[in-house]
Design a protein around this nucleic acid. Structure first.
Lengths: 248, 248
DNA sequence: CGCGGCTTTGATGTTCATCAAGTAAAGTGG
DNA sequence: CCACTTTACTTGATGAACATCAAAGCCGCG
């Protein structure tokens, strides 16, 4: 999971017989390259390298604040973040949870000048930050790259929209089952995991009250669908949870 | 509102002194051009013309059926359509209502091979259909065009997502107020309008039951916020509706 | 150690879906 | 065009699902 995209290697001097080497950047090895940057030439990768930097955030830190100007293109390299809209007094609404290689700035990067949502780390995270103008320039110049970016962007929006539709139709038990399976299957790839969010945040994510999140957790524990100890959750009966998620 | 994008003008023969004219296509005059196709050269516009056709649908007709392969890029030239996911027995869920110049195929055009939602005309509509491969080719070749398409696409997704978030937080009265103002301000630009959808469809759009849509309509009429006669609605007290929409 | 935030459970009331039943409107076949 | 059927609309009554309020234990942190 660790990767290091930030260092350049310069030769301080070189013998006559040697051409001046191009700047070598570890972006060439970055896993992210395989996601969308495949279509970029070596030179283009180098250009990105020049304008990019990594930034790390600890759990709980704000990465983007609603209203901030969009001048950079962000993707998540490590950790877990939440996208959310702030509301009055703890009434935030979580739009999405993003994991490594997601474009976290994607809503509105290309459609607005300012963020209309916030981003915060829900686990220690590092974000790769690229000048938006560089990305735009590259989109203009490299058509394959443009298509690939559109694909990723479109996928992310689709996912959010369809998530929302699905959740709206379920009632509380269904939503809890859904979110438990989401963490287990799509984030941690494990039946046992530590919830990275508070009960309250779960409530904000699936649109219900904190009390009811807890109540249904307890209910599921009573029915031996899950076991809970603090933040640690183990899925005991995934089939039943799937049925509950699908139905109700 | 009327426009005609479909006819080519060919000269059947031309004198020696005249160069063979390029195909002239009325796309050059199409309003849509100003929306995104500004950045295309005359030749590129011609290419689009060659691969495109218009198709009209009467109110109620299906335009796209869930599961269908995506091979074309659609935009709405005239009318009103609904994007929706089919559910069991009238339990459809309406995702969005699109108006002229919206990209109606936008969710998933670039991220999937098959539609995962349906489109139907809720008013007599005409759709301009362009080969998706032609659009993709143009995105690859013309960077400015690519950026413009991304912008439009991103705007549309953003709108849907934020709509959803807003609606989720409101209770029934707030949703009805919201949707009434939506039709008045964003679709018909008029305080009096004919609802293009049934009460049931409104319920599917803002996620409630048909009975409650009717109940709250009646309530609003009783309180002199609106007047209703059949499908015709007049907004009498927009300020109050705005307040109701904002609050609850 | 004490304060504030997170968690938990119970009691209560509101909001909303469901059921039922009837009227109006719109489409259908003779 | 009329009887007929179906679909849309409307209102009321009931109960289920859920939010809100209240109270107490827990945990981490300055």
């Amino acid at each position: 999971m660790e990767h290091n995209c930030q260092s350049f290697v310069f030769l301080l001097s070189y013998p006559d017989w040697m051409e001046e080497p191009k700047k070598i950047c570890e972006c060439r090895q970055c896993e992210f390259r395989s996601v969308v940057f495949n279509n970029l030439s070596g030179d283009e990768i180098s250009l990105i390298c020049l304008s990019k930097r990594d930034k790390s955030f600890v759990r709980g830190e704000m990465i983007i604040r609603e209203g901030q100007e969009i001048s950079e293109f962000l993707y998540l390299k490590r950790g877990l973040v939440k996208l959310f809209k702030m509301g009055a007094e703890g009434k935030d609404q979580i739009i999405n949870i993003a994991k490594p290689f997601d474009f976290v700035s994607l809503l509105s990067v290309f459609s607005d000048t300012h963020y209309n949502f916030s981003i915060a780390a829900i686990d220690d995270s590092t974000v790769c930050i690229i000048d938006l103008s560089v990305i735009k320039e590259m989109i203009e110049k490299n058509g394959k790259f443009a298509l690939r970016i559109m694909e990723k962007l479109s996928q992310s929006s689709d996912k959010i929209i369809h998530n929302n539709i699905q959740l709206n139709q379920k009632q509380l038990r269904g939503r809890i089952a859904y979110i438990l399976l989401f963490f287990s299957n799509e984030i941690f790839y494990n039946k046992t995991f530590d919830l990275p969010v508070s009960r309250k945040e779960i409530a904000q994510l699936i649109d219900m009250t904190t009390e009811n999140v807890i109540r249904i957790f307890s209910e599921f524990r009573r029915d031996n669908l899950i076991s809970i100890s603090g933040k640690t959750i183990e899925i005991l009966n995934p089939e039943m949870l799937k049925r509950i998620s699908a139905h109700g």
